[in-house]
Amino acid sequence: MKRFDCLEVMAPLVKDEIVVTSGSGQRVEWGHLSQHDGNLFVGSLGNALGVGLGVALCLPKRKVIVLESDGSLLLSLFNLPTVANQNPANLVVVVFDNQAYSRSNISHPTATAGKTDLAMTAKGTGIEHAVTVRDTAAFEKEIVDGLRTEGLRFIVAKVEETLDHRKMTRPNFDLLENKYRFVRYLERTEGKAIFLNERAEGKKI
């Protein structure tokens, strides 16, 4: 199973959900598939799950999907106990686990190529629904269930290591433009101002 296969399954399911991605290959592949203004492309490793948790806690009526990689999650395992204890019912975490640091250019194995099991790790921190899927049918079932039902989901998708994303057109906007697109999308759909503008509100500054 390739990561892109999973994302192709997911793309038509995303309507008004928020999608937060870490800065790995899935950022490029998801950006290639989806021009949704509710995409937040966090351009770094180790931050997407934390940012997504903050979004999920503050927008409890919206589904938030976080797309992580094994390398990014391993860099930020401290997120898992907090996710477990906050237990947001609107958060779906997908970890594309290719068992390699692809950006190392030497396909250096991650800990999941050895003894580490991310779904078991998540369960150990208290995330009750943590599963591993190995084919697109199982992925589709989990992502559909995650979007249609309430409850925290943690899905580890075992995927092949590919460099397909390097052949794809990258998103043509930078982090700042992405931030403002995302924020304006939330303002339109949530009906509230995101960034405080005291001058516009007539306050003395």
């Binding site: 934390g50 903050g54 806690l57 503050c58 930020s76 939330l186 509230k192 995101i194």
Partner: peptide
């Protein structure tokens, strides 16, 4: 206040960023 205990300040900053991007003073 929405108050979120964390296990690392690195995580606390990321979570606050998510909150700020949804319109909260974090």
């Amino acid at each position: 206040f929405r108050v979120v205990p964390t296990t690392s300040e690195a995580e606390a900053v990321s979570i606050a960023a998510g909150a700020a991007l949804t319109g909260n003073q974090a």
